[in-house]
């Protein structure tokens, strides 16, 4: 058992100052590495138990959704902008990053409620629980990325060696996912409308983000897409795989900074309020 000396008082954290709070948070997450691993395994194996296809659902979902858009595009109902790589490949690589964000956020924001009675009965690190859930998109991401690479070879495009930077390039997206998960998990604990609203919001966001289409040269959508941090965080890893470089450095660095700030604020907010939410789950 961990040795702990604790003092519980109302508004305790406020007296400590933000710097020592950050230290507490980092210590908590590092000290709970094993717990995070266990939560991650639990979520992962639980979601694919009692299922024949198991983790290969990660392949079926993008194939069907990308297939639908390929069909729409080929019938001229959906205009994607001009591309110099085959559309299915573009869409699969985009969807891989998108689901890393969307499935992580969905799982993360529901994690506290799903754990319900446990939260009201055992005192454990809730940040670790949300983290483990918000990382749920990683394994499907790896599978879909592999699918994308295989498709590259099928289309006769050799992926650039810079594709090896992918793990680093998706880090800002993952920070954003974790940060927003913390915030939504917290709010979801108090008002349950969040889960429903999130589903609608994610669908809306998918179309506001150039995942399945190319940013148009001008117009409303172009402006939104350029300001949307997600569009850079998702496009840049894709460009690195296909082209080995990107023209969106400014947008990417700006978006990464936004992600980091969002992450930091959400983490602090969560830390300051988690016990208040525990009593309302």
């Amino acid at each position: 058992m961990r040795k702990t000396n604790a003092v519980y008082e109302p508004d305790n954290s406020l007296k400590m100052g933000y710097l020592s709070l950050c230290k507490d948070i980092v210590n908590e997450l590092i000290g709970n590495r094993w717990l995070i691993e266990q939560f991650f395994r639990k979520d992962f194996s639980a979601s694919y138990k009692q299922s024949f296809i198991g983790v290969f659902w990660a392949l079926i979902v993008p194939i069907i959704s990308v297939g639908t858009f390929v069909l729409l595009r080929n019938s001229g109902l959906f205009f994607t902008g001009s591309l110099h790589i085959p559309y299915p490949l573009y869409a699969v690589l985009g969807m891989a990053s998108w689901q890393l964000f969307s499935s992580g956020l969905t799982a993360g924001s529901n994690s506290l409620i799903k754990a319900g009675p446990m939260i009201a009965k055992i005192n454990f690190s809730k940040k670790s629980l949300v983290l483990a859930s918000s990382l749920q998109g990683i394994i499907p991401f790896v599978i879909q990325l592999t699918l994308g690479i295989i498709m590259c070879f099928i289309y006769g495009i050799v992926p650039k060696w810079q594709a090896l930077f992918t793990p680093i390039l998706i880090l800002p997206l993952m920070l954003l996912t974790y940060g927003l998960s913390l915030l939504l998990a917290l709010l979801n604990g108090i008002i349950r409308d969040i889960a429903n609203a999130l589903n609608i919001l994610l669908t809306f966001l998918l179309f506001m983000t150039p995942v399945l289409y190319v940013i148009p040269g001008s117009g409303m959508l172009s402006r939104i897409a350029n300001l949307n941090p997600l569009s850079h965080l998702i496009s840049v890893p894709r460009q690195f795989i296909i082209e080995g470089s990107t023209q969106q450095w400014v947008g990417f660095i700006f978006s990464s900074m936004v992600s980091f700030i969002v992450f930091l604020i959400c983490l602090l907010a969560f830390h300051l309020t988690e016990t208040r939410v525990a009593e309302r789950i």
């Binding site: 040795k3 000396n5 604790a6 003092v7 939260i119 009201a120 009965k121």
Partner: peptide, 30 residues
């Protein structure tokens, strides 16, 4: 430490374990 007091102060000296509800975190499929 699951809930915090609204008034007053609790000091705990040592690690705390609880037998509050056993099996609370079990996942049925595992």
């Amino acid at each position: 430490g699951i809930f915090w007091p609204d008034k007053g102060k609790i000091s705990i000296n040592g690690s705390v374990g609880s037998l509050i509800e056993v099996g609370a975190g079990f996942h049925p499929l595992l």
